[in-house]
Computed example of a mutant assay.
Amino acid sequence: MNEGSDRRLLFVFTGPDGSGRKTVADSVGATLGIAKVISYATRKPRPGEANGQDYHFITPELYEQFERAGDFIESIRMNESRYGLRGADIEQSLREGGSIYLVLNPEGAQLLKEQYGDRVIRLFIYADRRTVEQRQRDAGIDPAILQFKMDQYAAAIAYQPSCEHAFENYDLAHTVFEIANTLEHYLQRNLVERD
């Protein structure tokens, strides 16, 4: 009997934009075989993004329809775009695959913590301000959006003490290994070797 199989946890990767939280989360998810719950966005995909992998890219009209129906447990506006997370997607993923992971800003992470309590494990991913700004420049983020995100950096960093775990992200392989070991403690599957 696998005692970890009934542990339906929500691993929430959060931190400032440009910290690498999405890359880290997807690498950890793939390493541990944990399903991802994907948010919805009304903006167009950026270079390298794929529909159904990074976001569900939908029309503003469909987004409004979901919002009117009360589908979103989190809904935010950033510049001209809307981003939302549907509660039904979370519940379905928990039923189908056990533990799941999500990539959210600190506000979304806090909302999930309030709704799901101890089942939510927040993993704060961070790097210094100069590094996250350079990563976003290298990714070709529009300068106006980049400025908006950097204006949010201090508020995002201030959320770190609220999280269950925090990880510096300067070396992706090291960060992923460290987090995978941490999550195995929660999953109790004993898949990752410990030193």
Rank of each mutant, 00 (worst) to 15 (best):
G4N: 02
F11P: 00
F11Y: 02
T14S: 04
S19A: 14
R21M: 14
R21W: 10
A30P: 02
T31K: 13
A35L: 07
I38H: 00
I38D: 04
A41E: 01
A41Y: 00
A41P: 00
R46M: 07
A50N: 11
N51V: 09
L62G: 10
R68P: 08
I73Y: 03
E74Y: 12
E74A: 15
M78A: 11
R82W: 13
L85I: 05
R86W: 05
A88Q: 10
Q92E: 03
Q92G: 01
L94R: 05
E96K: 07
I100M: 05
G108L: 04
L111C: 09
D118H: 05
D118F: 04
R119A: 09
V120P: 14
F124N: 00
F124T: 02
I125G: 08
I125L: 15
I125A: 06
D128K: 11
R130W: 10
E133W: 04
A139T: 04
P143K: 11
I145S: 12
I145C: 12
Y153V: 02
A155C: 08
A155G: 07
C163D: 00
N169D: 07
L172S: 00
T175Y: 08
V176A: 01
A180N: 13
N181W: 14
T182P: 12
L187K: 02
Q188K: 15
N190H: 15
N190D: 14
D195H: 07
D195V: 13
